[in-house]
Design a protein around this nucleic acid. Structure first.
Length: 346
DNA sequence: TAAACGTGGGA
DNA sequence: TTCCCAAGTTT
């Protein structure tokens, strides 16, 4: 690698960022807790999606102490619709650790901050550089795309081991006195100029130092393989309503998909089986009548697809069950497919 | 290391 | 419609 123009590259990037950066809510603070929250929300999630969640989150949980001891139901409800719900559970565990072990001060070194739940190599570097100004690498998808082009790196960025190459490149290039603007500059460049498709090279502040621009193959980089095969699951979802107009709901398990989120009873559809009978036995219900109002749709997750058929059934509970009034249901954290059903039925 | 883990938007 | 993504981490 040739870092001959390192100083010039740094200056152009940092100056461009300080001049052109978007005015985003988390750029109005250097509070490590708030930066941390923003970085976790931004994982695999678009900026425009995050903005309203970020504001609501900090209104509700303005300090590490308040967030650390909030009921999990509350924190999940605040995260509802954002996806990857383990993020907020890990965040709370990490923040609690900061409150109890570090006196409420987020560690300012990579070793300690990396011990916190949900803080991986990227988030550690992002908080250290943005909140504390430390010259640490923060390599995300943007950074790998930008640097694969600037440095003409053809390694497959889908492979975990490739990230190390980019982390080393950042540590070589980073401006030790402007680490925050340097790291954010790489990401902002990836978001605004050095985009995945049709990069705007003619507007790029560092095209003079870009080997891909020179070679004319920026649009072919980065090299990225990997395609995931999807599984299909078919479910019957029942809105089991009792005489008082309350609905049966259940909380999902504490690990795996949509952990700890609430849902209406679901029965997997299999050939030669009666889903209504399954509902009745599994939840100990007398099913009085089944409506013919059926909602049908599919919900696509990153690695699987739910095919849902939902309907209302009138029931009597044989034993004590968790039935909720509509107003109570609104308070429970639910995943998007359940929200979709509820909004239709309500 | 590969797979799991959500969602909504753009080409 | 289908595919690919968007500021990753955990297991």
């Amino acid at each position: 690698m040739n870092y001959e123009y390192k100083e010039e590259f740094r200056k152009e990037l940092v100056d461009w960022f300080d001049r052109e950066k978007r005015d985003l809510p988390w750029r109005q603070t250097t509070d490590p807790y708030k930066i941390w929250v923003s970085e976790v929300m931004l994982q695999q999630t678009r900026v425009e999606t995050v903005i309203p969640y970020y504001k609501r989150f900090l209104e509700k949980f303005p300090t590490p102490e308040i967030f650390a001891y909030a009921p999990q139901e509350d924190i999940l409800k605040t995260w509802e619709g954002l996806g990857y719900y383990s993020r907020v559970r890990n965040l709370q565990a990490g923040v609690k650790e900061v409150v109890e072990t570090y006196g409420g001060i987020v560690p300012d070194n990579r070793v300690d901050i990396s011990k916190l739940k949900g803080v991986g190599p990227y988030t550690a570097g992002a908080v250290l550089s943005i909140a504390y100004g430390k010259p640490e690498h923060a390599v995300d998808g943007n950074v790998m795309r930008v640097l694969s082009r600037v440095l003409h790196i053809y390694d497959d960025i889908a492979l975990p081991k490739t990230k190390k190459i980019f982390e080393e490149a950042v540590m070589e290039l980073i401006d030790p006195h402007h680490a925050s603007s340097f790291n954010q500059g790489l990401m902002e460049l990836g978001a605004l100029i050095c985009t995945p498709t049709s990069p705007k090279c003619l507007l790029c502040p560092v095209r003079e130092y870009c080997r891909a621009f020179e070679a004319g193959d920026a649009a072919q980089l980065p090299v990225k393989t990997k395609k995931i095969k999807m599984k299909n699951l078919f479910y019957k979802v029942y809105l089991a309503r009792d005489k008082e107009g309350r609905y049966l709901m259940e909380k999902r398990g504490d690990s795996g998909l949509l952990a700890n989120m609430w849902q209406f009873p679901m029965v997997e559809m299999k050939e030669g089986e009666s889903p209504l009978e399954k509902l009745s036995t599994r939840y100990e219900l007398e099913v009085a009548s089944s409506s013919n109002a059926v909602i049908s749709f599919k919900h696509i997750f990153s690695h699987l697809t739910w095919h849902i058929e939902a309907e209302v059934v009138e029931v009597d509970a044989k034993s004590a069950k968790k039935f909720f009034l509509p107003a109570q249901i609104e308070e429970l954290p639910m995943p998007v497919p359940m929200l979709k059903i509820w909004r239709e039925i309500k």
